[in-house]
Every structure is written in C-alpha cells, then in structure tokens.
Design a binder for these strands. Structure first.
Lengths: 199, 199
DNA sequence: TCGCGCAGCTAGCACTGCTAGATCCTTCGA
DNA sequence: TCGAAGGATCTAGCAGTGCTAGCTGCGCGA
C-alpha cells in the first residue's frame, strides 16, 4: 500500500524531528546546568556529551560549535530575565515603585544566577543587540526596562535614559558579583541611584 | 683573596637579580603587548615563551602560573589608569568640570585599551579589592574617582556615591565595548548621568 | 682547573575544541 | 522476506592548551 507507506514515512520523519528537537534542548539544558553548578570552565564538549549520553560529534550535528551552545543558553536566559522583570514591574502600579522592583529583580537575577548573567552580558559574544536582528527574548528584556523607565523619563530622551539606567544596573551587578563593592551598602547604592536618576 | 671574592659574589648575585627582574618585566610586557594586539585568547604560554625567547618552563620560575602573569598585567594597568584619571582631574579647578574630565578619561581608557580594561574589571579574578590587601595602584585608581566626587557629594555618603558613579561608568564602559549601546548617544548618556548624579 | 649546583631545556601528561572515516542500524524497494 | 542504500552515530585522532618531571650543560667558587 503505497498510501500507508508514505503516511508512515511522514510520521517517522516527524518523530525524528521531534526527537532531534528534544535532544537539542537536552544539550542546552545540560550546558546551563553544568555552568550553573560548576562554572563555565567546566562546560567542555566531553562532559556535555557524557551528560546527554551521546558522543561528542553529536553535539556538532546540532550546533556549529561550542560557542553556539553557549549562545543558545544565553538567548534562553534572556527570556527568563525578561519574564522576571515583567513580573516585578507589573506588580506595582506606582511608576517609581515599579521601576524599583524591576531594578531589584534585575540585580537579584544577576546575583542568583551569576553563570547565566555572565554569559548574557559579560562574556564577549557576537550577539546582535541594537539591530533588529537581535533575538526576540533579548529585545523583550530591554523593553521591560524601557517600559518601567517611561513614566519617569520627564523631559529626557526615553531610550537614552533607559540605556543609562541599564548601564548603571549592569555596573552594580558586575562589580557586586566581583566583590568590588561593600556588600552592606547594597541598598544604599540602589536608593541613591534611582533617587538621582528618576527623582 | 677572600674579600674581593666575597665582593665579587655579591656583585654577581646583584647582577643576577637585576637580570631576573628585567626578564620578569619582559614577560609582563610581552603578555600585555600580545593581549592588546591579538586579544587574550592569543596569550598562551608557548607564544609568550617564544616572544621572550625562552622556553615555557622559565615562565613558571617567575610566576606561579599563567593567571599570575595576567594578574601582573592587570595591576600594572591600574597604575596607568590611575595616572590618566589624575591628570584629567587635576587639569580642571571647577569640581563639576574635573569630574566630567575624569569620567571621560575613564571611558576613553576603556575604549582605547579594551584588553587592559577587560583584565582589570571584566575577567573574574581573585584580586582583592575592598580590603587593605588590595595592591596600591588599585586603591589609587579608586581614590582618584573618590577625590573627584568629593566636592560634589552634598549630603550623601561619599564612598557610597563614589561606588555608584564608578558602577555607572563601568556599566557604560562594558556595554559600549560590547556594542550594546547606540554609539551616537555616547555623550548624551554621559551628560545625563553626571547631571543627575551630581547636579 | 676542577667539580658542584642550579638555570634552562626537552619531552611529555592530561586536557581542550573539533573532525575524518569507519560502522552499524534503520528504512525502503524488489 | 531479504538485500542494498542511506544516514545517524561512534571511534580514533589532530593540533592546540597549561603545566611539570627529569635530564643537561654552563658558570661560578674553591
């Protein structure tokens, strides 16, 4: 029966694509998990292959190289961050409170998930940012900050002010993670920053 | 003649120590030069050894490991940055102008010498910072920012405000270097930041 | 001038990212 | 039902990494 045979081949191909997609995600998950528990220097192709219970070359049938795997983790993480920023922002009606909650959420993400923050913002990557080619989760994360800043922009250019706010948060996040700021003054710094930038 | 012999041995030992110190500096210079021209991924022990015209093991008689060489470059660079910040700050009598010049000098350093800035502030290192064990050039660099901020601190805690200013500059520096901010708005961001933080 | 001590080298280990080529298993057509 | 074709997967290996054990030969002191 040629008809059932062709139906079968389509179903089989679909199943294969589904299995491939699952394994693709398995690799990304393993990389993220390994990085979060042991740091990015522990993420090697051999250890990754061992985790997903396949040989190394399989990784290269899914990704062009190790960098592409790391990039996939980064893009996924932008989605997580965007979601958390949104939750924090929308939990407050008052603009100043919303921005503050968003800022706290941003810094919490950076300190709670340093490996993810590192690969998203610190490690030099060729991820497009400003352009329209930037991945959607990435634009979403920036959009969250922008939305929170908007009601407080006053006479300033919204996008410029957003860039400044983001830069300051990023600076606080990375210097804090590098233990270069006095931990006890964490909240005082944030208060001072937000009070001055959007007072 | 035992006296001349012992004098000779002292002189010889001094010469050896001098030569060792010169070679020590030669290694640090080679590492810095290699990093600035080809990036830190090009700084390998083999290429470094080739540059200084010795075999690899010689590096390990001077430094505990590759990390120690990189750290030496970082510490040296803190001295350079501190000097440039000082020059910019002392060139202006008016406090706001002095702080602005210092900020511009900071961002210029980051963009003109990205490899140095990276190893000083971006790469995760175990360099002590807040403590008194921090290397002198490192404390000097922070002190320059603090001195420039001081006249404009107003009612705020000086050290906290300095940390915030530094964080914001650091954020601008790293996000700019990663091409994540709109280049054309560079000056607008700095104006906005300084105006708000120390207005 | 001789012998010692140590500076510096050669060679190699265990690891890295990545890939060529062999192998086996699945699927399809006769 | 069976053989052949195709592709998915693995083994083995390359060139490079940081680092070190152990040999060698030179320079100094007596």
């Amino acid at each position: 029966m040629s008809s059932s045979a062709s139906i079968g081949s389509v179903a089989i191909q679909q199943r294969r694509e589904r299995e491939r997609a699952e394994r693709h995600q398995l690799i990304v998950d393993a990389a993220r998990q390994l990085a979060e528990t042991e740091g990015w220097e522990a993420v090697t192709t051999r250890r990754l292959a061992e985790r997903v219970e396949y040989s190394q070359p399989v990784l290269y049938s899914h990704f062009k190289g190790k960098d592409a795997i790391v990039r996939a983790v980064a893009i996924e993480s932008f989605g997580v961050l965007a979601e958390q920023l949104r939750a924090a922002r929308t939990a407050h009606a008052e603009p100043a409170a919303a921005l503050r909650a968003l800022a706290v959420a941003y810094l919490d993400f950076a300190s709670a998930r340093p490996a993810l923050y590192e690969v998203m913002f610190v490690r030099p990557t060729d991820l497009a940012f400003g352009t329209s080619e930037a991945p959607a989760p990435l634009r979403a994360a920036f959009g969250e900050i922008l939305t929170a800043v908007q009601p407080l922009a006053g006479g300033h250019d919204l996008e410029t002010l957003t860039e400044v706010v983001w830069s300051a948060l990023h600076g606080l996040a990375t210097l804090t993670s590098g233990q270069r700021l006095r931990p006890a003054q964490h909240q005082a710094r944030l208060d001072l920053l937000l009070g001055r930038l959007t007072g």
